[in-house]
Design a protein around this nucleic acid. Sequence first.
DNA 1: TCATAAATCAAACGTTTGTTTTAATAGGAA
DNA 2: TTCCTATTAAAACAAACGTTTGATTTATGA
Lengths: 212, 212
Amino acid sequence: MSQPDTRQRLLDAAERLFAAEGFHNTSVRAVTSEAQANLAAVKYHFGSKEALLEAVFERRLVPLNQLRRERLEAVRAAARQHGGRPVTTDVLRAFIEPTLAFRDHGPGAEAFVRLVGRAIAEPDDTIRKIFMQLVNPLFILLYDTLGEALPELSATERFWRLHFAIGSLSHAMCLAGHFQILPTGVTSLPDATALTAMMLNFLTAGMEAPCA
Amino acid sequence: MSQPDTRQRLLDAAERLFAAEGFHNTSVRAVTSEAQANLAAVKYHFGSKEALLEAVFERRLVPLNQLRRERLEAVRAAARQHGGRPVTTDVLRAFIEPTLAFRDHGPGAEAFVRLVGRAIAEPDDTIRKIFMQLVNPLFILLYDTLGEALPELSATERFWRLHFAIGSLSHAMCLAGHFQILPTGVTSLPDATALTAMMLNFLTAGMEAPCA
DNA sequence: TCATAAATCAAACGTTTGTTTTAATAGGAA
DNA sequence: TTCCTATTAAAACAAACGTTTGATTTATGA
């Protein structure tokens, strides 16, 4: 029997199922069945289905957020050191590169990326707040750092351009490995590095566009 | 009693609740209760809960799609008439302007915009296919028209840049009237016209960015 | 070895789910 | 009126839901 850590197996199964079927469309029984655990194990290890979702988010989002924060702070520090502004594309890269590269962080990570990509648009207030509580401080840091890179941009413009970028990113996260029919001419799917390069190229141009 | 059209009241209630709480988190009883109709009315008028969702999509998406298609075809025709390419920002505007302006199309339209913004990232295959079946032909037309505006762009680049744009748009649609805390300096929220202008400015720059 | 805690288990809790059935009510045409 | 169809209504369906209980097993440390 592979029963080393029931808690871990529950997190793995919940991560996969919540990403593939959605939170409300996934039953606790489906999770415990896939994890080869007893139905009551969710209550024992986490307390409730919602607390399980919170644990799924926290397990991967806490280290990912720390990495993204470090990269953003590094860009800020480097700019301050040579007395200039941070470069827009560096700021965006500090946030986006670790995010898209995360899908290669072992099995389940790809499902997690899809789960996170959807969480920001989650209708259920309780669920969205669980997620936002974890990522909002980072969004604020990104917003502030973009303000240092683009001081001529008004707060309103910067706010909405950041949301446009977040939309592009989260949509691309949802598409990870979840592919529809491709148009003729689009042969293969890009890896995380190539996708990051394309997205940075696109979003940097949008961020730096002169105001109309 | 306001009982002119039970079918219409069911669509209105379902539209609002599906957008606010999500499809799987909304019960048929909640819909019929808000519509002041009998529980069995959903089965009688639509057949099932899923068929009700499909009707919610179709009621507004069919005319909206027709408008977007006309606007896209008009841009194509105008370009062909004077023997040149369509302009990128005109192509994007033809699709985006009617989409964002739709939230002012009477009561319930704002909720519908949010519902559509989320539908593209819907985990449930059945639901996403109901939606995709309605919008995919338009996405293909948009993809082709962008190819006429930007013939130097590779199919892969164009494909992903379109997805980045769709991500920005759908995220902005989800945010409509559903606002979180605003950062200092961001005072008021833009109307559909102002938001369209900002988004077009952003996405046009991204679309026309030189390849790295 | 024994006691204590941690973990797992089967089973049932009461509710809620989407759906269905059957009867009652309305409204217009003959 | 009378008949027929369209619509509404109340009630129940079986199934699935998240949660909880209490007993049992497993592991740990004295």
